[in-house]
Structure formats: C-alpha cells, structure tokens
C-alpha cells in the first residue's frame, strides 16, 4: 500500500500555511514523479519479454500501480473522512473532495489498461474477472462520492454526508471484494503479495515498485494542486456571498 501525503497533513492544519507550502510541494512531487516514472518505465520496457504473454505484459507497469493507488486513494479518503467527522480537521474534507476524482481517474486507467491487456490475453476487451470487476465496483463508488459532492451546494454540509458515505464504503469494500471473488471463478491468484514472498521475477518487480512510487508522487502532486484549487474555489464562494451581503 503506497503511503500517501495525507499522513503528514496534520502539520499543515492551517489552510493558509497549506497554501504557502503547496507552492513548493506541487513542483517537488511532480518532479519526483517524473523522474521515478521515467526510471521505472525505462527498466520496465527493457525487461525481458514475458514467457506466455510476450511484450503485452509490460502494460502492467501502468495497470498494477494504478490499481494499488485506486485502493490507496480510497484508504486515504476514508482516513480523511474520519478527519472530518472525528477530529474536525479543517483540511480533511478538502483533501477528501480533491482526492475523489483523482482516485476515480486511477480506477478508470486501471480498468482501461486492464481491458487493453485483456484483448490479446482473453480475446475480449472485458472479462468478468474477479479483480477487474471489483475495480469496476470501486470506480462506481468513486463516481457516487463525486456525484454526492456535486449534489450539495454548501461544502461543509456535503463534507459530512460524503464522509459518512466514504466510511460506509470503506467497511463494505472488503465484503464486496470477497463476494465478487467468490462469484468469479475465472481469475488468477494474486502474484505480488503472497505469504511465501513475491513470485514475480525481479526484472519485473523492481521497475513495478519504482513505477508504483512514481505514481504515488504523481498522486501527491495532483492532490496538492487539487486541494489548492478547492481552497481557492471556497474562498471565491465565501467572497461571493460576502459581496452579496455587502450590496444589500
């Protein structure tokens, strides 16, 4: 599970301080992401062709990190939801709102790459395979969260409703995942995280982990930028209401 920058946001509780820090955080994270992804993709695409699937297996350097991140972002959102409901952290719902479309995008990239990967492997663009299907359900949950955000006008009211939905989702996702796995009979066993150690060859595993780290920094950069946008959007909204009150 990639660590997300949410963990250290406790130091940036003050939105103003966050805005100042965002100025250097965004380019720093973006640069780290670019370097790591370049290295990861370079070694990944120079890895020996896979025995059964040939070069098509290389799409995993995008597919697998985005799958991990789609789950990781949701975990972060669940923590942020706790931040909204329990600790009443002023940036928690901003982070939650900013993360939702990014998480949905990761889930979508994972689905699309999975589908493109599936074409030569399964012969169809889509197979109701357990893991892909779970990702589709996760994507749908993301869309629901985004729709709920958009349905409310008042951000603080929306934050509480979305936080509850996110936490309910967090509790339910393992149940959904278990049900879908049980339902699906057509899937390979997970091959990276196993109790007896990774079975994947190091020439694949190392670039994969570098890519995962690169995508995590990409997420960090996008999240920081999106949070800054959301804070600015709320300022505009407050100023708008203020202007209306002034003009009476």
């Amino acid at each position: 599970m990639p660590r997300t920058p949410r963990m250290k946001v406790s130091e940036l509780a003050n939105p103003n301080r966050f805005m100042r820090m965002a100025k250097w955080m965004i380019p720093l994270f973006a640069a780290l992401a670019a370097v790591l992804l370049a290295i990861g993709f370079y070694f990944g695409f120079n890895a020996p062709a896979e025995r059964d699937q040939g070069i098509t297996a290389r799409i995993m350097f995008v597919h697998v990190p985005t799958a991990w991140l789609a789950l990781g972002v949701y975990t972060m959102m669940a923590i942020a939801a706790l931040g909204t409901l329990v600790w009443r952290h002023p940036l928690a719902d901003v982070a939650q709102k900013a993360a939702a479309p990014i998480g949905a995008a990761f889930a979508l990239v994972c689905l699309v790459t999975g589908s493109v990967w599936g074409r030569p492997t399964w012969g169809t663009y889509w197979e109701w395979d357990g893991r892909l299907t779970s990702m589709l359900v996760l994507f749908l949950i993301y869309l629901g969260i985004i729709a709920l955000w958009r349905a409310f006008e008042e951000p603080l009211q929306a934050a509480k409703a979305v936080a509850i939905l996110t936490l309910v989702g967090f509790i339910n996702i393992p149940i959904v995942k278990f049900s879908v796995d049980w339902w699906s009979t057509l899937h390979q066993p997970a091959s990276v995280f196993r109790l007896d150690g990774p079975t994947m060859h190091a020439s694949y595993l190392n670039p994969l982990l570098i890519c995962a780290l690169g995508f995590s920094f990409l997420f960090a950069a996008m999240l920081t930028a999106a949070m800054r946008n959301e804070l600015l959007r709320r300022r505009v909204r407050t100023l708008t209401i203020f202007a209306a009150n002034e003009a009476r």
Partner: peptide, 14 residues
C-alpha cells in the same frame, strides 16, 4: 453543479 446530468449515465453503468 447540482443539476445531475451525469447521474443517468452512472445509473446506466450500474
């Protein structure tokens, strides 16, 4: 915001 034009497509997907 609040218009809900995209929700129909999400429901279709469901």
């Amino acid at each position: 915001a609040g218009g809900g034009a995209g929700i129909g497509v999400i429901f279709f997907l469901c």
